[in-house]
Design a protein around this nucleic acid. Structure first.
Length: 291
DNA sequence: AGTAGAACCTGAGCGC
DNA sequence: TGCGCTCAGGTTCTAC
């Protein structure tokens, strides 16, 4: 469940059972996910209290007492689910699982309250690390991370300045986490459609004269699409089976993503959504109204 | 500076 | 039922 809205949804779901709660024990099902767990991972967390649950880009940040942060990236297929205890039935503390195949349960956080917080990740592209609280800014994976798309910096002029001179396509520039951190394949496609911009347009052209309104529109579109997605719990793909109210609903609002061959939904546009491949990822867009 | 391709993994869906 | 192929929300690496 990986783009920013999905990670934020996970954060909101876990916060009620984690914030202020003490970790009794941590059980690892394997020595590594994408990367090995750091030395003494379980031991360093056991007995500690979780102070707050935060997010930076697509990273979940557990602030742990005694000055460390547990950092989680969900990769392509990572999810958490909550089991046991009363908290699991508290509205808002819903389960977050997309998979209940316990073969892929890799980390189990046993809370003192009796609640189990279980990390499941079939593809194991996710990872966890422990970072000293004062070392977050210099943490290698954070050091080159760009702005938060829902923060105050993002605007048309900011985009124009950031993309000025770039000869890479807009699609690639928006996926570049060093510029804006948190967008992924779905929300880039949706934002570009809303802004009427082609994913193939060279990013640098947003800085050209006469493009200021387009740049503004793109900044607004990014903010809107993320905000709307978060409001409905993000997007849940390919697993509509679970009917426990735990799934995101933004997939029903897709205007281009995964709609190849279907009509464009821009009012008055007779175009058809087509799929192309850019830097190995699918792009979905309407060549008629996205220029 | 850019891009393409592969790598890391498993599972789902499709055509045959 | 099974086989082989393609694709999947991410990121990082190498090679042109």
């Amino acid at each position: 469940m990986p783009e920013l809205p999905e990670v934020e949804t996970v954060r909101r779901g876990l916060a009620p059972v984690l914030e202020g709660a003490r970790i009794a024990a941590v059980h690892l099902g394997r020595p590594a996910l994408r990367y090995p767990f750091p030395e003494g991972f379980a031991e360093r967390l056991a007995g500690r209290r979780v102070i707050t649950l935060g997010r930076r880009s697509k990273y979940l940040l557990w602030e742990i007492e005694d000055g460390a942060s547990l950092l989680c990236h969900l990769g392509m297929s990572g999810s958490f689910r909550i089991e046991g205890g009363e908290a699991a039935s508290v509205p808002g503390a819903f389960a977050l699982a997309r998979s209940r195949d316990s073969r892929h349960d890799h980390v189990r956080f046993e809370m003192e309250s009796g609640v189990q917080v279980i990390y499941n990740d079939p593809r194991r592209f996710g990872f966890m690390d422990l970072v000293p609280a004062d070392g977050l800014a210099s943490y290698p994976l954070f050091a080159h991370l760009g702005i938060e798309p829902l923060g105050n910096e993002l605007s048309g002029p900011w985009l124009a300045a950031a993309f000025k001179g770039k000869r890479t396509p807009l699609k690639a520039a928006l996926l570049d986490q060093r510029i804006i951190a948190g967008l992924g394949n779905i929300y880039v496609a949706e934002a570009l459609w809303r802004a009427g911009l082609s994913p193939e347009r060279l990013a640098g052209t947003l800085a050209e004269p006469g493009m200021a309104a387009k740049a503004d529109r793109l900044a607004v579109a990014i903010r809107e699409v993320l905000t709307e997605a978060i409001a409905v719990g993000g997007s849940t793909l390919r697993d509509h089976a679970q009917a426990d109210g735990t799934l995101g609903y933004f997939q029903h609002s897709f205007r281009v993503y995964d709609r190849a061959g279907e009509p464009c939904r821009t009012p008055g546009c007779a175009g058809v959504i087509h799929r192309t491949v850019q830097s190995g990822r699918s792009s979905f867009w309407c060549a008629s109204c996205q220029t």
